[in-house]
Structure formats: structure tokens, C-alpha cells
Amino acid sequence: MPAGSLMEVKKVGRTVMEAQEIARAISRVAHEIIEHNHGIEGVALVGIRTGGVYLANRLAVKLGEIEGASVPVGALDITLYRDDLDARKEQPTLRRTEIPFDITDRKVILVDDVLFTGRTTRAAMDGLIDFGRPSEIQLAVLVDRGHRQLPIKATYVGKNLPTAIGETVEVYLEEMGRPDGVVILTP
């Protein structure tokens, strides 16, 4: 999030998840993934830049701990697949997409921090399919805040969070340089 709005956070931010709760959510989602896929054979994680990548890495660690085997992890930048580039005053900074494994015939789990309108997920699926033909695409999110604009549903949800449409949900992770936490910002 832009540095300029840090002040706002202090004023009207409301913390709805803290570090421990986030860790528990990740742990639970990891177990659900194993249960759903009968193990981790053929499973790969692809995090959506930026927050989703950190969560994907944490999930991979967790899955490794539980199953004693490693899961491949990739990072997907969906900027080039967005449907709102026209409306923007300036272009978002591009980051690299790094998927160092073949996704064809794998069960790919897209990982994102917040599920909102569903447009990011749509873009991510389009982007992913450019790399090959997964046997299945699943979706894991830390927070589902509702207000979908597309018929998209998460396979795994860390926490369902009722929000108002005008609110903003921010997920902070240690990898970004601040303590874990999920905050709702009210305008």
C-alpha cells in the first residue's frame, strides 16, 4: 500500500486478525489442502504478487512440515491481465512472473491474500493458463471479504470477513517489513 496512507491507518484502522490467528488459518488451510487433494502429490502453489506470494511460501513450508515432501511454489504478476488498465492514470509497476516448473497436468493452487470482487482471480487464471494446462485450478485466500462481481468461489478460506463495500482490507505480513495483521480501513 502507498506510504502516503499510513497516517490513515492510525486514525481509522481496525485490526481483525493478529499474528497468531493468521498462523492458525494458514495451518488449517494446509490441512484442508492435504485432505482435499489426498496428499500433496501433483500439487503446486502459485502466489499472486505481492501478498499471495508470501502466503504461498508459508503454506509450502507448512505442507512440507506435515507431509515431509516439498511443494513447488511460483509467483504470478497479474498486472498484464488486469481489466482496468485503461481507467488508470498511471500504470502499475510490473513485477516478474516466476513459475519455475511446468504447470501442465498439475493441481495448481492460486494463493491470494484477499478475495474481493473476483477480478484479480479471473486475471490470475488467464495468466496461469498462458503457462500450460493445469489439471485443476484451486484458490486459497487468507481473507474472503465478500462483494463478488464475478462467479468465483475460493476453495480454501482462512477467514470470512463481512465488510462494507467502501472499506479497504489490508493484509500486512512480516515479509513486507511489518508485523502480521489484517486491518479494515474505514474511509
Binding site: 504478476d77 498486472t79 498484464l80 491481465y81 510490473l94 513485477r95 516478474r96 512472473t97 498462458d130 503457462f131
Partner: peptide, 15 residues
């Protein structure tokens, strides 16, 4: 990022 795109099998994005 675009060099990465050019290295893919499908070298095309809908941007």
C-alpha cells in the same frame, strides 16, 4: 517482465 513474457511458450499477454 516483458523479457520473461517473451520467453514463454505463449508469448502473448492481453494488456
Amino acid at each position: 517482465s516483458f523479457k520473461e513474457v517473451s520467453g514463454r511458450d505463449i508469448k502473448k499477454v492481453p494488456t
